[in-house]
């Protein structure tokens, strides 16, 4: 097991390195020039552009730039953002908490609600409530997240004025302590609801089909014919068997917890990494973009290992030796 874990960590490290190289090449191959953007479009002076190019080392050949990037990266320096003129690491660090809070809470709520409903629907397949849930899930699944977000803003923020329209805190009030927590929670309701609503159908359907599949297994018949109560069969035996696919999907979703909510962060002006990524793409902020991508690839690699470990813990048929 330890050997397996070590092997996985080494491979993950290699993959992250490869992804860095790939990202670097792809970003540079894409059209657009950060210097032109920084210098402004109206009559930029050639001297300024030359100075900027030199300042950020963009005049060097690509492999030299890459080598410099990689060596400074290993020293723990992700370079400076062109756009913000700040170290990339501090920019990301400032915002990663907000993203984790929003996406993490949403992911957990979505898996809890979605799989609970799925468990019910799978167990009572064909009944009225199952049909209702399935219909709603289908509808939510077809709904674009940003559209749903805008609709929620329109209804609950603009019209009813129950909740704030955007941001994470009320900057004008400058709350502290409990008032701050409550303020953040209020700001979180709408983006969180949107994210949960669009993620529920995935969990719902996976859980429902998983439960139905397990319920049709021979061993359920065995337990039934021993006189065991349906409740015990379901709560102990069906549940654990049906859990595996949910873990997979949840793990994959968690892997994207840092960047997966970009669209929603933009709609609600949530000060998270997603917005940072969006801006760095449109402004060709190479270092910042590389930094965000690096964080994503590390979190994906990490979560995949975690999921595999949970799998081995849940399913005795999976053993890593």
């Amino acid at each position: 097991m330890k050997k397996y874990l070590l092997k996985r960590i080494v491979t993950a490290f290699g993959i992250v390195l490869f992804v860095i190289l790939l990202n670097y090449v792809i970003i540079r191959l894409a059209p657009g020039d950060p210097v032109r953007i920084m210098a402004g479009f109206d009559n930029p002076s050639q001297e300024l552009m030359d100075a900027l190019t030199k300042k950020y080392g963009l005049d060097q050949p690509l492999y030299v730039q890459f080598w410099r990037y990689i060596t400074t990266l290993f020293k723990g320096d992700m370079g400076d953002s062109y756009l913000y003129n700040q170290p990339v690491s501090s920019l990301i660090f400032e915002r990663v908490g907000a993203s984790l809070l929003l996406s993490g809470v949403s992911a957990v709520l979505a898996v809890l609600i979605g799989s609970t409903l799925g468990l019910y629907a799978g167990r009572h397949h064909g009944k009225a409530l199952d049909r209702t849930f399935s219909g709603v899930a289908y509808m939510l699944n077809a709904m674009p997240s940003f559209w749903l977000g805008i609709m929620l803003i329109l209804i609950f923020a603009s019209t009813l004025k129950w909740l704030p329209t955007q941001g994470m805190v009320n900057i004008r009030k400058g709350y502290t302590g409990w008032a701050y927590v409550v303020d953040v929670l209020q700001h979180m309701v709408l983006p969180c609801a949107t994210l949960v609503a669009v993620q529920i159908p995935t969990y719902f359907r996976i859980t429902k089909s998983s439960v139905m599949q397990v319920m049709a297994e021979e061993f359920v018949t065995t337990f039934r014919v021993t006189g065991m109560s349906e409740r015990k069969i379901f709560n102990k035996y069906v549940l654990k068997n049906a859990l595996l696919p949910i873990v997979t999907v949840f793990g994959i979703n968690l892997a994207y917890v840092i960047s997966g909510s970009t669209l929603i962060e933009i709609v609600f002006s949530w000060p998270g990494v997603g917005v940072l990524m969006y801006r760095s793409i449109s402004m060709r902020d190479y270092n910042l973009l590389m930094g965000v991508y690096l964080l994503i690839s590390i979190s994906v690699a990490f979560m995949m290992i975690v999921v595999d470990l949970i799998y081995a813990w849940l399913d005795p048929r999976i053993r890593y030796d």
Partner: peptide, 9 residues
């Protein structure tokens, strides 16, 4: 083969 739960002892 399938008459017992695969994930319980």
């Amino acid at each position: 083969m399938n008459s017992l739960s695969p994930v319980h002892r």
